[in-house]
């Protein structure tokens, strides 16, 4: 399961729409509920745990990727 698949599944979007610039302002399905689901699914996919504040502010795919990289995940 790739990073793109995880994000696409959590946000219910076509994987083709998971670009770095995509975010809460461009993907209408990226609601606060799906943001939480995204966090949990990333935790499960990469066997890690976030402090909520750590990722709550990530509003684009690029920012989510950066949070993961900061935790040592190659994405």
């Amino acid at each position: 399961m790739t990073f793109t698949d995880v994000v696409a599944g959590a946000l219910d979007v076509d994987p083709a729409h998971v670009t770095d610039d995509a975010g809460q302002d461009t993907l209408s399905s990226w609601t606060s509920m799906r943001h939480i689901q995204l966090i949990v699914m990333l935790e499960e996919a990469y066997s890690l745990s976030f402090d909520y504040e750590e990722i709550a502010g990530a509003r684009t795919v690029r920012e989510v990727r950066e949070v993961l990289r900061a935790k040592g995940v190659e994405v």
Partner: peptide, 8 residues
């Protein structure tokens, strides 16, 4: 997760 992508 596979299930979500399949549903899509």
């Amino acid at each position: 997760m596979d299930t979500r992508l399949r549903w899509q």
